[in-house]
Amino acid sequence: MPELIAPNVRLHDAWLEAHHEWGPGLHEDGFGIGAADDVRSPGGFAAWVARLARQSDPAVTVEAGRHGCAYRWIVEDDRVLGGIALRYGDDEYVAWAGHVGYGIRPSARRRGLATWALGRMLEEAPTLGLERVLAVCAVGNVASMTTIERCGGVFEGVRETKSGPLRRYWFQL
């Protein structure tokens, strides 16, 4: 049975296995990884996990005028299957990327994990002060469109952005 957990240094090897499966690049949505993050070394991984914890603290983020972000890893039997992030606060990044981002490693896809995780995070959203949640996905990302629609996202339309056209959906909580 999968569970959502806060990022944890104990799962360094399991996270690296998932990261390796995705292949090169910074494309694991929901993990909050940046170009400067050294996730391979134990020290760098610990620093990255600590940064994610700081970003999850509303006192550090929203009050400073930035969005906060609750990061969760989708884990089953100490295997990292994916990640999901729930952003709170309003800034340009949230307006572009939405309140939620998620990704499932290729070998764990088509099991309903993204739908399950999105449903859990939508339950958590009101505790972070959100009354509605914006989810966006690329126009051609049928898997993400299906996930969002299964969870009750209401299609707003397509908006042209710096990364190309994005479908926009809203969840009224």
Rank of each mutant, 00 (worst) to 15 (best):
P2N: 14
P2L: 15
L4Q: 03
A6D: 06
A6W: 00
A6G: 06
N8P: 03
N8G: 03
L11T: 12
H12D: 02
A14Q: 08
L16H: 00
L16V: 00
E17H: 04
E17N: 09
P24A: 15
L26G: 03
L26W: 12
H27A: 11
E28L: 14
D29H: 11
G30W: 01
F31W: 00
G32E: 05
G34K: 15
A35E: 15
A36W: 04
D38G: 11
D38S: 10
R40F: 13
P42S: 13
P42L: 09
G43Q: 08
F45S: 07
A46P: 02
A46K: 05
A46C: 10
A46E: 12
L52M: 15
A53L: 07
R54M: 10
S56R: 02
D57I: 09
V60S: 05
V60F: 12
G65M: 06
G65V: 04
R66I: 00
C69V: 13
A70F: 05
I74K: 07
V80G: 07
V80K: 01
L86D: 00
G89K: 02
G89D: 08
D90V: 03
Y93S: 06
V94K: 04
W96Y: 12
A97F: 03
A97C: 14
G98T: 08
G98D: 12
H99A: 00
H99G: 03
Y102F: 05
G103W: 03
I104A: 09
S107W: 12
A108I: 06
R109H: 09
R110W: 01
T115F: 05
T115I: 08
W116S: 06
W116R: 13
A117V: 04
A117K: 07
L118R: 09
L118K: 02
E123Q: 15
G129A: 08
L130N: 03
L130Q: 05
R132Q: 14
V133N: 06
V133D: 01
A138S: 11
N141Q: 14
S144G: 13
T146K: 14
C151M: 02
G153L: 09
V154S: 08
V154K: 14
V154I: 14
F155K: 10
G157Y: 11
V158W: 11
T161H: 15
S163C: 07
S163Y: 04
L166Q: 09
R168C: 03
R168Q: 09
W170C: 13
